[in-house]
Design a protein around this nucleic acid. Structure first.
Length: 567
RNA sequence: UGGGGCGUAGCCAAGUCUGGUAAGGCACCGGUUUUUGGUACCGGCAUUCCCAGGUUCGAAUCCUGGCGCCCCAACCA
């Protein structure tokens, strides 16, 4: 038997990585692309980023960082009818806020328009692209169906010279919108519909938010994306599953143009989260129809919404790591996100006391007057970490309505007639009697306190099972509290006939609470744990009064017991 | 017999190429600690991998045949 310490390599299980990281690792090991790794996050600036994008951002920037590579931020801005600077600004802000840095690598597909045009001319010269006169409807008719081959365009065999001339004139604005397109010449009978001579350029007499009216023809996704990747020396072009069919076009363009850099596309399953919607169209609808308060409504799955709600970038990043990257369509339960949020906030925010639904408590044997200041620890699990504060105590207090029951079940450890409870950081009190109003509602709870228990310390041998939070009535300040809950009451709003009918009517409840004095100085965006309630964040937009947003509630095993009837 | 993908626990997800006897996380259920019914910690939770055959000493992994779900017929990305 050896007495040596653990110098042998422990038999720890190897960290499993996702299939994309495996491919990247293999490529680095085999020195493909010279051992370099360059990825990119390519949003179209036509909407706000949401947590689904965060998954892609974490993947792309993460892989680059892990391999000493780079990740470009590239705006895929080739449709002037939908894009806007408002979106490019919000996207940059959100990516930065999430904690990622693209350095000098900020690009716009629209900056490649001249080079893309040259590539298109080259394709024409190779006899691999042609100008087509078919209308949108006509082209659709001739494309065939998934089971039947398509028909060739009457213009498919135009001469190179004529195509060159026509394409140049398209660029010069000589033709009407929709009257002509430049199409790849691939195979009208190809089983992959996307390979049936896909349009590469269309005429759009719309100014571009960045290029102004320099162009009246715009390249399409299938032509732009692969070439942009190649131009930027991207090594691994990572996108979502719905682009799997596009990979054939991606490869065709790069191979027939014989570009120097040869990136490859890999697809993973996009994030679906329960109890919310993620499509830009539906999100936009919620905003436009006033069903939510804007893109940054704390109920929205947008990065802006999560931020305003009080979620940290770290929580979003660990969430994205936890859910993994694979190819199976799946739906992640919202509780998984909530876990990541709590797990992060638990370790980093100070605890304070706030009474959401106040019930008056009178300590009959406590002297009237200004009371006294008591010491409260900001972070009980590691007191030195966040220090402590003074909280004022006096004869009249507020406690949570739910912390008192006149006729409690056996396992109710809070306040009840004759029952003793600890006031957090203060004293042990015992309920002596109660006062009701005409309707029979309890409006005042009278208690006696034990002066020997200052600070909440129970004397030797005395067991107090319950500890509740409180605020001093004369010192507490009013605050508006917004209690947010899931936006939809069903797990899959997308599966509903009308997703808007599935909106949770209780997704927002606004109340006025009594919060401890120290919260007067909370800064916009500052986060706290309201003890025994949840994590809250002072609203960053409304600052003329105290408004707190509930980020997420604490786990509540008492509520669980009540619900399951085990009390 | 259009093509391209996917199917492992209530939810994510390793493992599949290179058969050796089902990682991890969330949720859930017990227990310990606790001045938050929070946190932390400990333990439990798939005799079985969509189904049916086959190969093999041995199959989630290989073979054959089914079934189910997703994507593709925008001059969107």
């Amino acid at each position: 038997m050896s007495t040596n310490d653990n110098t042998e390599t422990p038999d720890k299980p190897t960290e499993s990585v996702d299939f994309i990281r495996s491919i990247v690792a293999k490529d680095v090991a085999s020195n493909k692309h010279g051992g370099h790794v360059v990825t990119r996050f390519p949003p179209e600036p036509n909407g706000y980023l949401h947590i689904g994008h965060a998954k892609s951002i974490c993947l792309n920037f993460g892989i680059a960082a892990e391999n000493n590579g780079k990740c470009h931020l590239r705006f895929d801005d080739t449709d002037p009818t939908k894009e806007d600077v408002e979106y490019v600004e919000s996207i940059q802000h959100d990516v930065k806020w999430l904690g990622f840095d693209w350095g000098d690598n900020l690009f716009h597909a629209s900056d490649y328009f001249p080079r893309l045009y040259d590539f298109a001319v080259e394709l024409v010269k190779k006899g691999k692209a042609y100008v087509c006169d078919l209308s949108l409807e006509h082209m659709r008719m001739m494309r065939g169906t998934v089971k039947e081959p398509g028909q060739a365009s009457p213009n498919r065999d135009r001469s190179v010279a004529e195509n060159l001339d026509l394409f140049a004139r398209m660029r010069n604005g000589e033709f009407d919108e929709g009257s002509k397109t430049l199409r790849a010449k691939i195979d009208m009978a190809h089983p992959n519909m996307l390979m049936r001579d896909p349009p590469l350029y269309r005429i759009r007499k719309t100014p571009h938010y960045r290029q102004g009216d320099k162009w009246c023809i715009y390249p399409m996704y299938d032509f732009t994306h692969c070439l942009s990747d190649s131009l930027e020396d991207i090594t691994h072009s990572i996108c979502t599953l719905e682009f799997e069919n596009n990979r054939a076009v991606y490869d065709w363009v790069l191979d027939t143009l014989e570009t120097k850099a040869r990136p490859h596309q890999y697809e993973f399953a996009r994030l679906n989260l329960s109890h919310t919607v993620m499509s830009k169209r539906k999100l936009l609808q919620l905003v436009r129809e006033g069903l939510v308060d804007g893109w940054d409504d704390p109920r929205m799955p947008t990065i802006a919404g999560l931020r305003r709600r009080g979620v940290t970038p770290e929580a979003i990043r660990t969430f994205c790591e936890q859910i993994g990257v694979a190819k199976a369509n799946s739906m992640v339960d919202l509780v998984q996100l909530e876990f990541s949020i709590r797990d992060d906030l638990n370790r980093r925010v100070p605890r304070v006391m706030a009474v959401l639904r106040p019930l008056k408590v009178v300590i009959d044997n406590y002297p009237a007057g200004d009371g006294e200041d008591l010491e409260a620890t900001n972070y009980p699990d590691d007191p030195p970490k966040m220090g402590s504060r003074k909280v004022p105590f006096s004869k009249i207090l507020y406690i949570e309505e739910s912390d008192f029951m006149e006729d409690p079940p056996k396992k109710f450890f809070r306040l009840a007639p004759g029952q003793e409870v600890r006031l957090r950081w203060a004293y042990l009190i015992t309920c002596t009697h109660i006062v009701k109003d005409d309707s029979g509602k309890v409006i005042e709870v009278h208690c006696s306190y034990d002066p020997e228990t200052r600070g909440g310390n129970a004397p030797e041998g005395r067991k107090v099972k319950g500890t509740i939070h409180w605020v001093s009535a004369q010192h507490a300040v009013d605050a508006e509290i917004r209690l947010y809950d899931r936006l939809f009451s069903v797990a899959k709003p997308d599966a509903e006939e009308d997703f808007k009918k599935a909106i949770n009517p209780d997704s927002l409840e606004t109340i006025t609470a009594k919060v401890e004095r120290s919260l007067r100085d909370a800064k916009p965006g500052e986060r706290f744990q309201f003890e025994r309630q949840g994590y809250f964040c002072r609203d960053s937009e409304i600052t003329d009064r105290l408004v707190f947003n509930r980020t997420v509630a604490l786990r509540d095993s008492w509520a669980k017991m009540v619900k399951s009837g085990t009390t």
